[in-house]
Nucleic acid binder design. Structure first.
Lengths: 108, 108
DNA sequence: TTTAGTACCATGTGATACAAGGTACTAATT
DNA sequence: AATTAGTACCTTGTATCACATGGTACTAAA
């Protein structure tokens, strides 16, 4: 039992939410998402992100388009679908409820 | 893919934290913990809680004492050990960092 | 032609919440 | 006295998901 493990578990629950949030502003390809997450102090690795994006796409929350790159292989630019937008709205509510719930247990 | 699943994932990460928080105020036996969690809108079931408490005890974060009950079988009252107190302090920091990290990705 | 950098992807493992079912004790009902 | 209801503890099997690891393929520079 170490703090890192628990930390990882906490992060696990919000990854999906954060990634959808990032993609709601504007489209991104995976490396950009990893960079954005890193800026927010949420380290994600490729082996986590790629399957997650594929899952979200298969579930109709994301779509993507290929774009050629001048500095390497083509990139997959992901963005939210209308269904994804709606899902994200609900996740926002869920997140706020969770924060409040945790506050309740940690206070009083 | 449904919202409930994602909700469950979010909750998963904070269960340990919430339970330790609840036990930091005063000792409780499992049914009381379930009740406290329910009040905070965090539904936990026995099959989740018992193994978790056992794990936390085996890791030295919790201790317990038996107490006879006049209305059924004896109860296991759990409380935090000094190590558990320290661990909880760190989890508090971790949680606050996570909330801030999520805010970063959802804003700007 | 080789090397470095970038980008996409798949497989196996570990952690953990939950569903479902089981044992055992007390108290009230029949 | 026997049965039922309520309470409390516990175990096993399953599904989900992040991560470690390793692989393929494209471009550009050495």
């Amino acid at each position: 039992m170490n703090i890192e493990n628990t930390k990882a578990q906490m992060k696990k629950g919000v990854l999906e939410f954060c990634i959808l949030s990032i993609l709601s502003k504007t489209e991104h390809y995976p490396s950009e998402i990893i960079e954005k997450m890193k800026e927010a102090k949420l380290i994600v690795v490729e082996g986590t992100l790629y399957p997650l994006l594929t899952r979200l796409k298969n579930d109709g929350l994301l779509s993507y388009r290929w774009e050629e790159s001048t500095s390497g292989p083509p990139r997959k630019y992901y963005k939210l679908t209308p269904v994804g937008e709606q899902f994200l709205k609900e996740l926002n509510i869920t997140w706020n409820e969770l924060v409040e719930a945790v506050n309740k247990t940690t206070q009083n």
